[in-house]
């Protein structure tokens, strides 16, 4: 098993980079509303999700907890304008799940914008929202978020699992990068982003225990750090995580001194905003994987000494 300090340090450094580059979390309010005002919401929502994991797992030091809280405050107040940008997003595109999905983790962390909630409850009544042709993993995620919000998902989560790629436990040698991302997100949704590892049905947990090591081995050698990070999260969601030492060593070695994690192979070059848009996600994933793996390693330590 990997040295816990190595895994922990990856997250510490990632959070420093995210804080230093917090202005990269930006919307484009002036973009033509028809062209995709909602496009730039995703990074903000992912940041909030990861910060929530950090508080939940409780393995971060006081410096990391402080940075996470300040990142949330910064993005809520500045990027989202205290939630008004989410309201605006819902008006631009009423049926898009994106503003709701970004809002939920903030709400769970104590932020509030009543108008987003009113709209969400209204849209939930619409047949149209339930009928949206989302792909199965996305549908699973939306249903999970609705449950966490306090609504009864109109498409039950159990109904979506069987339609996902992972839910059908297919031939593991057919996995491609795109499929692998579907797999990781199916696991995130089934476990509420690592909070409930027991949320993985036993057949899926067995399937992943058997084949995940192959995929980790492969994407490590391909130096696809973004996907490798997500696969390391999946490992930490399993009943018996491997916390694979070779993978973690390679992952940690790919991280830059300032904490940035390249998406593929090495750091890209370009304007700061362009670089941010490429590396913010793998860096968030690095923080996520680090916190979850550290938490699992410490839990095993606790069990071992009991």
């Amino acid at each position: 098993m990997t040295d816990t300090r190595l895994m922990h340090t990856v997250g510490v450094r990632a959070l420093e980079w995210l804080w230093a580059h917090r202005d990269g979390f930006r919307l484009e309010p002036d973009v033509d509303p028809e062209v995709g005002f909602l496009e730039r919401f995703k990074p903000v929502g992912e940041l909030a999700l990861i910060c929530r994991v950090l508080f939940r797992e409780g393995v971060a030091g006081s410096r990391q907890a402080d940075l996470a809280r300040r990142l949330l405050d910064h993005t809520w107040r500045n990027t989202l304008d205290g939630g008004r940008m989410l309201v605006r997003g819902q008006r631009v595109e009423p049926l898009s799940p994106i503003p709701f999905e970004v809002y939920l983790p903030y709400k769970e962390l104590g932020y509030s914008e009543p108008e987003v909630e009113r709209a969400t409850v209204l849209y939930h009544r619409l047949d149209s929202w339930a009928a949206l042709e989302l792909d199965p993993t996305r549908r699973l995620g939306l249903s999970a978020f609705q449950r966490r919000f306090g609504l009864v998902p109109r498409v039950p989560e159990a109904d979506s699992v069987g339609s996902t790629w992972l839910g059908q436990t297919p031939e593991p040698w057919t996995v491609s990068g795109h499929i692998a991302y579907d797999v990781t997100h199916t696991v995130f949704h089934l476990t509420d982003w690592g909070e409930h590892p027991e949320g993985l049905p036993p057949d899926i947990a067995d399937y992943l225990a058997t084949w995940l090591p192959v995929w980790i081995d492969d994407w490590l050698d391909l130096e696809r750090w973004d996907l490798l990070g997500e696969l390391l999260v999946v490992d930490a969601c399993l009943p018996r995580p491997t916390l694979d030492e070779r993978a973690w060593r390679g992952f940690a070695a790919a991280q830059q001194p300032d904490g940035a994690m390249p998406a593929v192979r090495t750091m890209p070059e370009g304007e700061p905003d362009e670089v941010f848009d490429i590396v913010y996600h793998p860096t968030l994933v690095a923080a996520f994987a680090s916190m979850l793996a550290t938490s699992r390693a410490l839990a095993e330590l606790t069990h071992a000494t009991e």
Binding site: W173, T210, W211, D217, D218
Partner: peptide, 14 residues
């Protein structure tokens, strides 16, 4: 057998 099966998947992927 599981390790050889993993190796099969790895070889196909590569």
């Amino acid at each position: 057998p599981v390790d050889v099966a993993r190796g099969f998947v790895r070889a196909v992927r590569r």
